[in-house]
Simulated scan of single mutants.
Amino acid sequence: MQSFKFLFLLLIAVQLNSQELKIAKEKTLWNDFTYDMGNVFEGVGHSYSRPFHWKGNDWANLGYMAAGTAVLFAVDDEVDHWVDGFREDVPGFLVDYGNRYGNPQNNYMFTGGVYLAGLFTKNEKLRRTGVLLVSSATAIGFLQQVSARMIGRARPKSGDSSSVYDPFQIGRIKNYDAFPSGHTMLAFTNAYAIAKQFKNPWVKAGIYTVGMIPGFARITDRFHWISDVAFSTVLSIFMVETIDRYLDKKYDKKYNDSSKNLSWNLSFGPNRVGVAVQF
């Protein structure tokens, strides 16, 4: 009888030990890494599939964004001429920062650094932020590359007006890939994702301001029209929100209120049009 008790206890000990080994295995860096990279690709696919699941409010938001972009399209050339009045007075370091930070190579160095810091420090919240940054940049970067070539809009520095297009180019045509703005998308995607870590509205505003510098720099340097930058900024918000809500299902650490939705308020008046986005 004692031998049976001993054997029974031994089997329980072996089972518990195997469970502990399994749990320990699941917490290795490699398993965390493969899990996160899977979420990166799934997040990209999820963001591209969302239009097939849109409902009334989602289509309304798309309509608001299209209407706002159309309004800016009408004044692109005038804004570019207006910027001529202070273009030379913009500090060079701001323009250099904007052009370099929004560069894809520099962007992935930053987003990859954030993710690896979270991975090696075993900080799930930071890991999740890195996954959000990498997946958002990948989704929006690929979308920008394809759409810019298909649309073929002239850049301001081409010498053509904002209404000139050379569409459906498989290869890159220099100065005819203005819409949308890749630098703006990558920079503001990062800023919006990072700002989610903070609740203080002043901290958020500061991060958003830094994230908008590349868009301002690209307008100043005559790489983009104001409508390119505005559209790209709003699209970045949509992309980050879509992927972040998907990641809510994948990680325990949450820093956003998934019950919130983007809301738009349009106001019209004599010689005035206003668009307010609450998020």
Rank of each mutant, 00 (worst) to 15 (best):
P91N: 15
H46W: 14
D228F: 02
D252E: 13
D32Q: 15
Y176I: 09
L9Q: 05
G102C: 11
N106Y: 06
V229P: 00
V164S: 07
A154R: 03
A13M: 11
L72I: 01
S258P: 01
V229H: 00
A217K: 10
L132R: 14
D244R: 03
T220M: 08
W225F: 04
S158F: 02
S135G: 07
L94Q: 10
G211K: 03
K204P: 06
S136W: 04
G211F: 04
I140D: 10
D160H: 13
I151F: 01
P91Y: 13
W82H: 11
G63L: 12
I213E: 05
A154K: 01
G141S: 14
Y246E: 11
N106R: 06
S236P: 02
F168H: 14
T220Y: 06
Q15C: 14
L72F: 04
A195G: 04
S236L: 11
V114S: 10
A230R: 01
V234R: 10
L7H: 13
L247K: 07
A193Y: 07
P51V: 11
I226W: 01
S47Y: 04
H53G: 03
F52T: 07
A70W: 02
S162D: 04
D76N: 12
E42G: 09
V229F: 00
N17G: 10
F142D: 08
M212W: 11
T209I: 08
G171A: 13
N175E: 12
S263N: 07
S158A: 07
I194D: 07
A154N: 01
R127Q: 14
G130F: 13
A13C: 08
S227T: 02
S49E: 07
S258W: 13
N103V: 02
Q144T: 00
N17S: 15
V90R: 10
E241H: 12
V95L: 12
N271R: 15
Y48T: 05
T34Q: 14
N256C: 14
Y48C: 02
I243L: 11
D32T: 09
A193G: 10
A148F: 00
R149V: 00
I243E: 02
V229K: 00
K5T: 15
S263D: 07
S161F: 04
P201S: 14
L262F: 05
K254N: 15
A205Y: 07
W202E: 15
K260S: 04
Y251A: 13
K22A: 14
T242H: 06
Y97K: 08
A148I: 01
F73Y: 05
R172Y: 15
S259L: 09
R155A: 00
I226D: 01
K249E: 13
Y64N: 05
Y35V: 05
E124L: 11
A205V: 05
A217F: 08
A187G: 03
S147M: 07
W59Q: 10
I213T: 03
A137K: 06
H53N: 09
A148Q: 00
V240Q: 04
D96S: 10
E88V: 06
A276N: 12
W30R: 12
V114P: 00
G68W: 03
Y208Q: 03
